[in-house]
Design a protein around this nucleic acid. Structure first.
Lengths: 187, 187
DNA sequence: AAAAACATGTAAGCTGTTACATGATTGG
DNA sequence: CCAATCATGTAACAGCTTACATGTTTTT
């Protein structure tokens, strides 16, 4: 039995982009060039195989569009399975360790929620994010008390980490009030 | 002709740790477990091959220390070549794009400066860091003006990025005054 | 006439991960 | 006696990157 396929982070980025709008590999490359998503390369050697991988596993499908003169474009779009996979990724519950290890991924998830997650769902994400950040911040602060004396550089690094998390808590607050406001607008 | 070997980021982390203090692979693993350096795994399959790689290229050397009962330890230390490589990494000039793509690496560099870079050199690093951060911040702000209207989520993501950089500028200020103070202390 | 944009792919290789494998010693 | 700690490695693989490869069309 072939073991369960699960997209890579790059795969989810592609799903997110194709969910916004069906695109060719070339379109995706240009999008990644103009607004970088994480640190992924926009080179053909990255994008085309990744799209084929998604297609092979049934998360996207494609139509080849022939034009009079130009080379035909292969335009990819999400399948039902692809939409489910993207949705599952976006709604996955956060772990505290994600704040340390996968912050960039969490932010990508936030960005790709646009258009497919309701304001309610986005708010839930931000609330969860804020709670986990609070927890992580208190862990870091307890480390300050126990380890900080040992090394100046280390203490400054810890301080930076704490400021980072603090800033993200404030950002989440800001984002949440923005979403609360937009919710009220529609009443 | 074999083309020039240059350590990977994990390689530099190992050089930094071994520069602080000669260690065995096992020691390194425990260090990575207790205080994570970037997102590297502390698993044997990561550490032992990486150390062998560094040894093969002459950046570290090792002595095998035999003890009465316990398994012998292979303790690694930097060679002259290794010290040079580490120094070159630490003093490499920053690019503005590093603020976006390699922030974690910059912070590792800062941490490993302890003990081998002078306060002057560390200050220069922080000054450079601050300048590049300022530049990057202004680039991001100009993006806000041109693209922000398009998407709410995207605007919030941009806002977060700007707050991040802003926070790092303040952190650099804080760190610099700390180093200025310690310099004055020694007069 | 040349350069840039359009459009897609393959091949080789590096880095690192997980899982597997082994075995002695020490502490509870 | 069982678990944890000490200690080192290999093998298979995933995932991505760079460099190579190809050809048309539009813009300068």
């Amino acid at each position: 039995m072939a073991r369960a396929y699960s997209p890579t982070l790059l795969g989810y980025v592609l799903l997110g982009l194709l969910n916004q709008l069906p695109r060719s590999g070339y379109d995706v490359r240009r999008e990644l060039e103009s607004t970088p998503m994480g640190h992924f390369s926009s080179s053909p050697g990255s994008i085309y195989p990744a799209l084929q991988q998604l297609k092979k596993n049934g998360l996207v499908d494609s139509e080849v569009i022939h034009r009079s003169r130009l080379k035909p474009r292969e335009v990819f779009h999400l399948t039902e399975k692809g939409k489910k996979a993207l949705g599952a990724w976006l709604h996955k519950r956060l772990a505290v360790s994600d704040l340390r290890d996968n912050l960039a991924e969490l932010m990508l998830r936030f960005r790709f929620m646009e258009g497919i997650a309701s304001d309610q769902e986005t708010l839930r994400f931000l609330q969860d994010f804020r709670r986990k950040a609070k927890t992580y911040a208190s862990i870091l602060k307890s480390q300050t008390r126990t380890q900080a004396e040992s090394s100046h550089h280390f203490a400054l690094s810890l301080q930076r980490e704490i400021s980072m998390i603090q800033m993200h808590i404030e950002w989440a607050d800001h984002a949440m009030t923005a979403f609360e406001a937009s919710k009220t607008d529609r009443l």
